[in-house]
Design a protein around this nucleic acid. Structure first.
Lengths: 352, 352
DNA sequence: AGGAAGCATGGAAGCGCTTCCACTAAGGCC
DNA sequence: GGCCTTAGTGGAAGCGCTTCCATGCTTCCT
C-alpha cells in the first residue's frame, strides 16, 4: 500500500541500509549513490513511516506540556511561547490539561508508563522527586516554568521581588492597610514549598516590614485558583470587614479583576475607594487599566522550550536556572496616575 | 531492560498471543488463564509499549487540533471543550497552532505525510477539498467546528441568525446608523465562502433590510484578525468619519473590546455615545459588561470531540451537522439596561 | 459411536524502520 | 608485493506488539 524503504532500495538499486543512511542524512554515503536514492525517493513519493521510526529509535519526537489549562490566561500565554519554539524544532506538542491536583499524578503516571514523550515541560509546578527520578531513569528531560526548583532546569521570575514591587508601590502611594489575595497551593499532600503565590506573599510582608507597617494576618485572604469568581469572593470578604483595606495586591491579574468587579458591584470605585495591583500582565489587564507586575510569559515559554530542545540534542545547558525580569506596569487601578478615577480607562493598544 | 510481552508470557506460562489477548481484553481467554496472566503482569509491572502497538496496529491513539491559537479566546475555549472529551476517551491531544494562513497548508501537508494522527479537528475553518480527499484515503476522520461544511461532520451555530439577533437588538433600541466590524477571512487564495464573519454580516444586512433601514457599505469595516488592536483601529476609522455611527456590532468580542477601548480613549462613552454589541461571550465580555451573542464554545469543542471519538470507534454519526443555539446576552454596552453609562459595570460572576 | 463444530491456545509472520556487523574494493605504507 | 586501513555498502537482526493460522481438546449432534 504505502511506499516503504524496500521499494526505494529496489528502485535505486541499493540496500535498505543505504536508503536509511540517506534519509537520516548521516555520513558515509557516496554522492552518486545519495543522488540515486534521492531521485528514487522523489519519484516514488516516499515518506518514512514515523511509527516505525519511533519503534526502532525508541523515541517519538514529541514533547508534552503539563498545565492547568482551563484556569489561567497566564498559562495559555506560556503555552504559546512553547509552541512557537517546539514546532519550529520539528517536535509535536502534546498538551496535558490537569484540572485538579489529584489528576496531576495520574497524568504523570500515564505519561511515564506510556513513554510516548521525549521531553516534558511543567508549567507552574514541579513534579515530585519520585517522578523526577523515573524521568531521569528513562532519560526524559524535564523543564519547569514559573517555578524554581533546585537541580532542575527552570525558567522563573523572582516572585518575592515581585511581591515587594507591588506592595512598595502601594505603600509609596500612601496606603497602610494593604490586603493580599493569595492563591491556594494546588497540591494537597505535597511539599508546601515556595509556589509563586507564597513567594509573592513573602515579598508583600517584606515590603510592609521595610516600611515599618505591621502586617495584619487577617488581611491575607486565600482563594482557590486564579479565577475572577474567586477574586470576587475574596474581595467580598475583605469589604465586609468593619475596617476594609484601602488597597489590595492580588497574586494574579485574574484575581485582581475579580476583585475589581466586586468593588464596582458594591458601588465603590477603583482606585478611589480601593487601589488595586495585580500580577502577570495578561491581556485583560491593559484593557481594565489594571496596574500590575508584568512577567514575560511568552518568553518564559520560549526559553523553556529552547532549553528542552537543547537537552534533547544532548547539548549541555549554560545555566540550569534562568531568572527573567519583572516590570511594574503602572496603569490607573492603583491611583498613581492623576485623572481617571474609574476602572476602565484608555490603555495601550500594544501588548509586548 | 523493560518488561516485554515475552517476559509476561514466560512468567505466566502461556504464549504471547494469549497475553496480547488479555491486555486487549478481547474475547476467548479462559478466566483462569486470564487471571494467571494478569497476576504476571501485575507482578512484573508490565506496561505495553505504545510505539510497538502503534506500529503493529497502524494507529496512534492521538488526535490533532488545528487552530490559530494565538489570537482568540474563542478558540482556546473550544480547545478546552475538546480536551475534556479527548483525554477521557484515552487519546492524546496534539495541538497545531497556525499563525498564518500560509502555514495552514504546510501543517496539513506535514500532518498527512506524518500519518501520526488518528483524527483531526479543525477549528474555524475547513481544509480544502484535496486535503479532505487525502484524509479520506488514509481513513483519518475530520471534524470541523465553528464552520459549516456540507458533507463534513460539523459543529456550528447559525451565524446569519446571530448577526440578525445582534443588529435587531440595536435597531430595537432605536439605532439607525449601525456599523459592522468584520474580520477578514484568513485564506487568501481559497474559496471565499461563508466564514462566520461573512455570515454575521449577512444577518446584519438582513436585519437592517427587515427594519427598512438602508445599509451603508462604508459602515462595514474590515479588520484582519480578532485582536483588540484591530478592533481599536477599525473603531478609530469609524469615529473619524464626519457622521460616525451611533452603534457598532462587532464580529467578535475581542474586536468589540478593542472598539470599546478606542471609544473611551477618545473621551466618549459606551453606550452613551456609541452602543456596542459583540459576538462569542468570552470571559472578558462579562467583565467589560459587553452585550454579546453567546456561542456555546466549550460545548462546541466537546461535541466535536465526541463526534470524532465516535467516528474512530467506527460508529456512525446520527447527524453530520449539529447546530448549536445562540443567546443574546444583554449587558450594559448596548444601552438596553437603565443605570450605568460607563463601560465597566457589575457583571455576573458565573460564566456558563 | 463417529463426525462436526467450537473453544482456548501457541507462536510465526509481519508492521517499517535503524543499527550493527560483515564484506568488498581501493588506497597507503613499509 | 604484502599487509593494514578505510570508505562504501548490503542486509540480518531486532524494536515489541497484533494478528492470523494451525493445533489439540471438548462438546454436541445424529
Amino acid at each position: 500500500m504505502a511506499v516503504t524503504i524496500y521499494d526505494v532500495a529496489k528502485a535505486a538499486g541499493v540496500g535498505i541500509g543505504t536508503v536509511s543512511r540517506v534519509i537520516n542524512d548521516s555520513d558515509r554515503v557516496s554522492p552518486e549513490t545519495r543522488a540515486r536514492v534521492l531521485a528514487a525517493i522523489e519519484q516514488l513519493g516516499y515518506k518514512p513511516n514515523p511509527m516505525a521510526r519511533n519503534l526502532s529509535r525508541q523515541r517519538v519526537r514529541s514533547i508534552g506540556v503539563l498545565l492547568s489549562f482551563l484556569t489561567s490566561p497566564f498559562q495559555v500565554a506560556v503555552l504559546q511561547g512553547i509552541e512557537q519554539v517546539i514546532s519550529k524544532a520539528g517536535y509535536e506538542l502534546v498538551v496535558y490539561s490537569i484540572e485538579s491536583p489529584e489528576r496531576r499524578d495520574l497524568v504523570l503516571e500515564n505519561l511515564l508508563e506510556g513513554l510516548r514523550l521525549d521531553g516534558v515541560i511543567a508549567v507552574s509546578f514541579a513534579p515530585e522527586e519520585h517522578f523526577l527520578q523515573r524521568f531521569r531513569r528513562y532519560q526524559i528531560p524535564v523543564v519547569v516554568t514559573d517555578y524554581h526548583q533546585e537541580g532542575l532546569p527552570s525558567i522563573f521570575v523572582d516572585n518575592v521581588r515581585g511581591g515587594r514591587m507591588a506592595t512598595q508601590h502601594l505603600l509609596e502611594l500612601g496606603h497602610r492597610r494593604i490586603a493580599y489575595i493569595q492563591d491556594h497551593f494546588q497540591r494537597p499532600n505535597g511539599p508546601q514549598g515556595n509556589w509563586p503565590g507564597q513567594d509573592r506573599r513573602l515579598g508583600y510582608l517584606q515590603a510592609l516590614e521595610a516600611a515599618g507597617v505591621e502586617a495584619e494576618p487577617s488581611l491575607i485572604v486565600e482563594s482557590q485558583g486564579h479565577t475572577r469568581a474567586r477574586g470576587a469572593a475574596a474581595m467580598a470578604q475583605l469589604l465586609e470587614r468593619p475596617d476594609p483595606p484601602t488597597a489590595v495586591f492580588a497574586a494574579s491579574d485574574m484575581l485582581a479583576l475579580g476583585a475589581m468587579e466586586q468593588i464596582h458591584q458594591r458601588g465603590l470605585r477603583v482606585p478611589g475607594d480601593v487601589a488595586l495591583v495585580g500580577f502577570d500582565d495578561i491581556e485583560l489587564a491593559a484593557f481594565a487599566a489594571l496596574t500590575t507586575v508584568r512577567q514575560p510569559m511568552r518568553r518564559m515559554g520560549r526559553l523553556a522550550a529552547q532549553a528542552l530542545v537543547q537537552l534533547l540534542a544532548k547539548e549541555p545547558l549554560e545555566t540550569l536556572a534562568q531568572e527573567l525580569p519583572l516590570t511594574l506596569v503602572v496603569r490607573e487601578s492603583c491611583g498613581a496616575k492623576a485623572g481617571l478615577q474609574s476602572g476602565v480607562a484608555p490603555s495601550e493598544s500594544t501588548h509586548p
